[in-house]
């Protein structure tokens, strides 16, 4: 559906060149909810703007439905953009238009007759649960409601892809939750492929099936969310996957391990079994359970005892139970 081939973007200014995206190749398939995660300044927003060519890549190709977007004329590109919608962190609604007329905007510019446009817009506002706010102006709506209007507006042209640029970053946790559920619903019921840009792992865990971890403009790691969650390989992915209250540098002991449970083992009295069978005590430094792709996943940071024999027993135990673990080392 969307393929990025060696996409790079360099911003040139008189003083210095900034390489925001370097050599990124991604393959987003129809029906995916593809997460692109990274810290601030990792190049996520630039990368997503390369998909609809709001930023023209310095080099590389963007293939959408078999067509190289970089080769299109300006007019053809504007037409294609109607199939690739986008929502933003700042909602970007037209402040002088009502919710209904905001949703009408993309239809207006596409030349849809006014009556038809209003009917469709009203239906979309209904889909996002805002039928009673039709005549409200953005200033009269809450953040979550504004993002719902923006989603309705993005869906007006029946897009194949919805790009979400930090769409929930300005919202509180409860509202974030409801917006993510709405996105998930749009993906399943309308078959819209979604690309989610975020700096929060929990957004990825909650709705994405695939993820690319971006670090300094480059893809550090990509693949299925489950795989990356269970065994992150790059430092940046580890950083993002670790439970929020423990940062790597906080773990002073060299004997700390991170264990990750898949759907089933999360329900076992695992720690009790481990202490009984290995005759060793462990200290829980951090723990977290998550819902990834509808299954319960959990992870725990354990501090192991000092003596090597106990450590060995614990590791053997983990291996026989097929539980993924990795040693967590202090970064400094």
């Amino acid at each position: 559906m969307i393929e990025l081939r060696n996409v790079s973007k360099t911003f040139t200014s008189s003083s210095k060149d900034v390489r925001a995206v370097c050599d990124v190749s991604l393959h987003i398939e129809k029906g995916d909810i593809y997460g692109i995660i990274g810290l601030s300044g990792a190049g996520k927003s630039t990368l997503v703007r390369c998909i609809n060519l709001l930023e023209k890549p310095t080099s590389g190709n963007v293939i959408f439905s078999g067509v190289d977007l970089c080769s299109l004329s300006k007019k053809e590109l504007l037409k294609t953009r109607k199939k690739i919608s986008m929502i933003f962190q700042g909602f970007n609604l037209l402040s002088q238009r009502t919710a209904l007329r905001n949703v009408c905007y993309p239809l207006e510019i596409a030349g849809v007759p006014k009556k038809e446009a209003i009917e469709k817009a009203a239906k979309l506002l209904d889909t996002v649960g805002l039928s009673d706010k039709k005549n409200s102006y953005p200033a009269q709506l809450s953040g979550g409601q504004k993002q719902r209007v923006a989603i309705a507006r993005a869906l007006a042209t029946d897009p194949e892809v919805l790009l979400c640029d930090e769409a929930t970053s300005a919202l509180d946790p409860t509202t974030t939750q409801s917006i993510l559920e709405l996105l998930k619903q749009i993906n399943t019921t309308m078959g819209v492929t979604i690309v989610v840009i975020t700096h929060e792992m929990k957004v990825v865990e909650q709705i994405c099936n695939k993820v690319a971890v971006l670090d300094n403009g480059c893809v550090a790691e990509k693949g299925y969310v489950k795989d990356i969650f269970l065994s992150p390989k790059s430092n940046i992915a580890k950083e993002l996957v670790l439970p929020k209250n423990t940062t790597v540098s906080e773990l002073s002991s060299n004997n700390a391990i991170r264990i990750a449970f898949d759907g089933q083992s999360a329900f076992e009295p695992f720690i009790s079994n481990l202490t009984i069978e290995c005759h060793a005590v462990v200290n829980i430094l951090g723990a977290d359970t998550k819902n990834i792709g509808g299954k319960a996943f959990g992870q725990m940071i354990l501090q192991l005892p000092e003596d090597a024999a106990s450590v060995e027993r614990i590791k053997t135990y983990l291996e026989t139970r097929k539980i993924a673990y990795e040693e967590v080392k202090t970064s400094e």
Binding site: L54, K79, I84, S85, F88, Y105, P106, I109
Partner: peptide
């Protein structure tokens, strides 16, 4: 941002 949104919609 509003102008960017309009551009993203193909205006």
């Amino acid at each position: 941002g509003v102008i960017e949104a309009a551009q993203s919609m193909g205006s």
